[in-house]
Simulated scan of single mutants.
Amino acid sequence: MRTTDMPTIVSPTETIMCHKCGALNRAPSGRALSAGKCGKCSASLATPHPVDIDDAKLSRLQARDEGTFIIDVWAPWCGPCRMMAPAYDAAATSFVDRVRLFRLNSDENQASAASLGIRGVPTLIAYRGGRQVAHQSGAQTGPALNRWISSAISLA
């Protein structure tokens, strides 16, 4: 059989926005995020720690990113937000190869908080395949947070 007669196997890909420079990258679906690097700045596509985002980055994520990510909408004055922060940091490490975790300060990014329909903080919002798949208001800690993330990222 000639090589031109071989069937072509195309791996499904998804567009993932680099959290450092904002460049859009094509990455194989289902592959560990830590295995991918941004084509522009060479940063890892994984987020081993939650990444702070602003209105512009959120807008770009919502419009162009097809990967799996979670946004924690929080406020600096919020006690439950501060209580949940260490568990959210730990979850970023636990889920580093499967999901990216972001933080959006609702006080500094009021337009985004309003467009997301945030009525209270903290609020977690999960995206997969370019669409919102889960929404959870209220603080989640430890095992409850990990269960929510696992459930949210398994939704189609």
Results as ranks from 00 to 15, higher is better:
Pro12Lys: 15
Pro7Arg: 07
Arg64Lys: 14
Ile71Trp: 00
Val99Met: 05
Thr8Gln: 07
Ala114Cys: 00
Lys20His: 11
Trp148Cys: 10
Thr8Cys: 02
Thr141Phe: 00
Ser29Val: 09
Phe69Pro: 02
Ser34Gly: 04
Asp107Gln: 06
Thr4Val: 12
Arg26Gly: 11
Leu24Tyr: 05
Leu45Gln: 03
Asp72Thr: 07
Val133Trp: 03
Asp5Leu: 09
Thr15Ala: 15
Ser94Arg: 13
Met83Pro: 07
Phe69Leu: 14
Met1Gly: 15
Thr93Cys: 02
His19Gly: 14
Gly67Phe: 11
Met17Ile: 13
Met84Leu: 01
Ser154Gly: 12
Asp55Val: 06
Ala87Lys: 03
Ala90Met: 12
Ala156Pro: 04
Cys38Ala: 09
Gly117Cys: 11
Thr123Gln: 08
Gly22Met: 09
Thr3Gln: 15
Ile70Thr: 02
Gly117Asn: 08
Leu145Glu: 03
Asn109Glu: 03
Gly67Ser: 10
Pro50Asp: 03
Ala63Cys: 08
Cys38Met: 05
His135Met: 13
Ser112Pro: 01
Arg100Phe: 02
Asp97Cys: 12
His19Cys: 10
Ala152Asn: 04
Trp74Gln: 11
Leu101Val: 08
Cys21Arg: 14
Pro86Tyr: 08
Ser112Glu: 00
Ile118Glu: 05
Ala46Trp: 08
Ser59His: 04
Cys41Phe: 02
Ser137Glu: 12
Arg60Val: 02
Gly138Ser: 07
Ala87Gly: 12
Glu108Gly: 01
Val10Thr: 14
Ala144Asn: 05
Ser150Val: 13
Thr13Ala: 15
Ile125Met: 09
Cys38Tyr: 05
Thr123His: 11
Ala144Glu: 14
Leu124Ile: 06
Gly67Glu: 02
Thr4Pro: 10
Val99Asn: 05
Arg128Pro: 01
Ala63Ile: 03
Ala134His: 05
Ala113Phe: 03
Ile71Gln: 03
Asp72Pro: 12
Val96Tyr: 04
Asp89Asn: 14
Gly36Leu: 10
Ala91Ser: 13
Ile9Trp: 14
Ala152Thr: 04
Glu108Ser: 11
Val121Asp: 07
Arg60Asp: 07
Pro86Glu: 13
Ala144Arg: 03
Ser94Pro: 01
Asn146Met: 06
Gly39Phe: 04
Ile71Tyr: 00
Ser42Gly: 08
Trp148Ile: 07
Ile16Met: 14
Gly67Pro: 11
Lys40Met: 03
Glu66Val: 09
Ala92Lys: 11
Ile70Val: 14
Arg128Asn: 03
Ile53Val: 12
Glu66Gly: 15
Ser137Thr: 09
Ile16Lys: 12
